[in-house]
Amino acid sequence: MPANPKYLTQSKTQRFAKITAAILGGYFVSVSFHLALTSWFNRPNIIITMTFSAFILWVALMIVAFLAKNGWKIWFLYLGLSLFFLGILYLGQNYNPVAP
């Protein structure tokens, strides 16, 4: 049974924003989150955990992107979260340096 057209996104730009936010934005958020964790916790454990949990988080963020009304707001949210996690990564590398 096909989807009801009234529930589908009519605008091409909104559709493009949702698709790119789901794929790229969700990936950026999930990877930056796990990289931020590596700067504060045991790196090998986080990397091993990342192989599974990053994929699950990425899929969840894809679903959120398609449930949103406005694709550009989701893009700004995902970019903001990515920058936040990268800031935590930066602070973790400065205040919690890993011994070589």
Rank of each mutant, 00 (worst) to 15 (best):
M1W: 08
P2N: 14
P2A: 09
A3I: 13
P5T: 09
P5H: 07
K6H: 12
L8F: 10
T9I: 13
S11G: 03
S11M: 10
K12C: 01
R15M: 11
R15G: 09
F16K: 07
K18C: 03
K18H: 06
I19P: 00
T20Y: 07
T20W: 12
T20C: 05
A22N: 04
I23L: 15
I23M: 08
I23E: 01
L24H: 11
G25L: 07
G26K: 01
Y27S: 08
F28D: 00
F33K: 04
H34A: 05
H34Y: 10
L35Y: 10
L35P: 00
A36G: 08
S39V: 13
W40A: 07
W40I: 12
N42H: 14
N42D: 09
N42Q: 00
R43W: 12
P44R: 06
N45I: 14
I46L: 02
F52V: 13
S53T: 15
S53Y: 15
L57K: 09
L57G: 11
W58R: 06
L61C: 00
M62R: 00
A65P: 00
A65T: 06
L67P: 04
L67N: 13
A68V: 11
K69T: 07
K69W: 02
I74W: 05
W75E: 02
F76D: 01
Y78T: 05
L79Q: 09
F84W: 12
F84A: 14
F85V: 06
G87W: 13
I88S: 12
L89V: 08
Y90N: 03
Y90P: 01
V98W: 10
V98F: 14
P100F: 14
